[in-house]
Amino acid sequence: MVFNSAHKKSVIYLTLIVLLLSPGVALKAHANDIRILAPRAKIDPVYDYFIELTRLVLSKSEHLYPKSKLVFVAHDDVTQGRSLMLLEDNYVDILWTGTNARRELRYLPVRIPLFRGLLGYRVLLIRQEDKEKFLQIKAPEQLKKLNACQGAHWPDSDILEANGYLVSRVVHFNAMFKMLAKKRCDYFPRAIFEGYAEQRITMQKYPNVILMDELILHYNFPIYYFVEKNNTVLAKRLDSGLKTALDDGSLMNLMRTHRVSKHLFPLEKWQGKRYFELSNDILGSDLSLKNQQFWLNLKAQ
């Protein structure tokens, strides 16, 4: 059955309305509540890091703003594209996601990378039996012959394709692990802080999926807080809290001690890896790139 674009949009909005009116959805009880999405999937170990970071950031300015608390909005594995629709329609107040020029025009970004640029360092989830094949890859042209699983709405998919890589775009996050295990794609690039935890979680269900960090894809790709376009008060609070956390060292301390990122340290151990550099032209004129205080360079440690 073929749907026209207007029908597709109506179906999406009807789905969201049913979702948000269903039991268990957390809406604002108080005007100062800050609403965020509950975990998007069973395989989402990085979610807890961003919750702790958000609480840390808000704590840096709590003396300047009315008392508030985080409220978690339940959902049925909402995709990244639909998550942004929820932000635009004022069902949630904060999202953290990778940026691109379109998102920065439509929403209000807080231009400080939440993982200091490490979102753009991508290790590879692969099948155990393919490990030797990947170890023999010495040039990008070899990897470009293989097929990567990536999210349908992820800017990563656009970046990979713009650099000549083959991509299978997948709507649902959990499905990518199954596709990899069942040989429907060859590898699944994950951020350096995501892949290890996700592989540990999925190994019981997909024991043939392993992580390879000898080869790393790299492109400039920050993950930002986004708020609704007119919510300048919240954006200012997040910006101030992040800068304070950077200046006083508490952001780096969270990265060093949190279970999802502590394995990255010491950073010097990443110097000897093979890196394939990709350009990211979808950033536009990203101001955060000019402030080196915000970024970590694993190759230069």
Results as ranks from 00 to 15, higher is better:
residue 18 V to K: 12
residue 64 L to H: 13
residue 27 L to W: 08
residue 300 A to L: 11
residue 69 K to W: 03
residue 199 Q to S: 09
residue 162 A to E: 02
residue 276 F to W: 06
residue 94 I to C: 08
residue 294 F to M: 09
residue 288 S to Y: 01
residue 298 L to A: 14
residue 104 E to Y: 05
residue 210 I to E: 02
residue 220 N to F: 01
residue 141 E to R: 06
residue 198 E to H: 00
residue 240 S to W: 07
residue 160 L to N: 02
residue 296 L to E: 13
residue 201 I to G: 02
residue 241 G to W: 13
residue 226 F to G: 03
residue 286 D to C: 13
residue 209 V to S: 05
residue 179 M to Q: 10
residue 30 H to Q: 15
residue 190 R to T: 06
residue 102 R to D: 02
residue 5 S to F: 03
residue 64 L to G: 03
residue 153 H to D: 13
residue 153 H to M: 08
residue 152 A to N: 01
residue 106 R to G: 02
residue 104 E to S: 15
residue 278 L to Y: 00
residue 126 I to C: 04
residue 49 Y to S: 12
residue 247 D to E: 15
residue 119 L to E: 00
residue 59 S to L: 08
residue 122 R to N: 07
residue 138 K to G: 13
residue 176 M to L: 12
residue 35 R to Y: 06
residue 13 Y to A: 14
residue 283 L to H: 04
residue 20 L to K: 04
residue 174 N to P: 12
residue 120 G to D: 07
residue 189 P to E: 06
residue 228 E to P: 02
residue 265 F to H: 03
residue 12 I to A: 11
residue 279 S to M: 11
residue 258 H to S: 10
residue 129 E to S: 09
residue 224 Y to Q: 09
residue 131 K to G: 01
residue 152 A to E: 04
residue 112 I to W: 03
residue 58 L to F: 13
residue 166 L to E: 07
residue 178 K to F: 07
residue 170 V to F: 05
residue 278 L to T: 00
residue 264 L to T: 06
residue 215 L to C: 08
residue 136 Q to W: 03
residue 46 V to Y: 06
